[in-house]
Design a binder for these strands. Sequence first.
DNA 1: TAGATTGTTAATCGATTAACAATC
DNA 2: TAGATTGTTAATCGATTAACAATC
Lengths: 230, 230
Amino acid sequence: METMSEQKSRLFNERGELVVPKAVVGRLSLYLREVQHLIRDGNETTNSTELGYLLGVTDAQVRKDLAYFGQFGHPGIGYRCQELVSAIKNIMGTNSTWNIALIGIGNLGRALLRYKGFHDQGFRIVAAFDVDDQVIGTQVEGVDVYDIHDLARVVSDQSIRLVAISVPSHAAQSVVDQVVEVGIEGILNFAPVTISVPSQVRVIGVDLAMELEQLAFTVVNRDSKSEYKK
Amino acid sequence: METMSEQKSRLFNERGELVVPKAVVGRLSLYLREVQHLIRDGNETTNSTELGYLLGVTDAQVRKDLAYFGQFGHPGIGYRCQELVSAIKNIMGTNSTWNIALIGIGNLGRALLRYKGFHDQGFRIVAAFDVDDQVIGTQVEGVDVYDIHDLARVVSDQSIRLVAISVPSHAAQSVVDQVVEVGIEGILNFAPVTISVPSQVRVIGVDLAMELEQLAFTVVNRDSKSEYKK
DNA sequence: TAGATTGTTAATCGATTAACAATC
DNA sequence: TAGATTGTTAATCGATTAACAATC
């Protein structure tokens, strides 16, 4: 591909494999969040030492992480906050808005519908789905609730590529199969079960009980040394 | 410490530092979840190959991960599911129930109060806190809602060591300071901001918008190779 | 210019995998 | 016993850090 952008050629090697360590991708979101806060606080520029301090990593790591994606630092100056935010958003694909479908209007589903944080980062829940006749056809937080059977049509009409799934565990795999069927590319799964998808579909699982478990572990096995600063 | 248990002596080195890689701790919860499912499906034993398949890691890694904490496999047989579950729960500190306080009764807070998944894994939200006079003194999902000023008393009365914080971002640090003040040991932070705590307090942050960002990245930068199986 | 800070290379550190003797 | 599978060592692989020439 001769027309491949410079950015892409940095992210992939000759075999078409993503060459950015997974850990770096995780930190990218954190950089974005911190730089956005710095802007809100009136900062024009920042630098690897400051960002490293905010994230609890070394300055060398900050520079190396960002350098995977191009050269947007300025020697002697640092990183211009606005520039950095828009560069990271470009990399993450959040410079334009993503339409999201939410499946499962239980307590968590409703909380997600009302959650303001998504919008600020370029995500918009534009459709909700459920199996309960009581809610189908109504609106929740201004979002239409559809029968899950209308999935294909709504996904196509609204150009939806990502879904959030907040259905009971026992229903999760069946819902996943349905969203995969209609061509969804990424799934945010809140059901505490492992789901199977074809290799071209991406899944991120959020298991709230598991997070508490991790916390319990770090508290129980706390020691003198490790410092979780920030 | 002569009386230190064998388990503990495996987890810490001579300098009192935790010697288990962070990544292993993350997988421990996943092992627990999968083995519990295997039990539900009627399995008595499992093995490193099966667990590796379920988690998407190698069999060697499963054995090495579990071996950090002791020898609970049986050569020629594998791992007895019940045994493994209770071993992992012991390690994670979830063999007995943890009392949790929830701070911030907004949409997400209410969803957390109603979430059934915590209880199954040994967590119980026993008290909720807010600043809104309308809800203070009432019950939500059978849980008393207190004024945040009663934090010290309730935390002490109910032996609360962990809190979940679901307040608006701008209020998060102030709430954190208050829970630290009353001796809370671990914080699950749902506010999308970095918070500061003294080094003895543990924090895990869950940022829902960030999870969607990660998902968007993997979808946008998808390539032929990487397979996120399961 | 002098001072600051990047991007990148090479060295270090840590985590994963392969292989296999020990064990049931 | 033969077959299966562990726990562990050594080899490999990948990620982090230190150092510094290049640059503003």
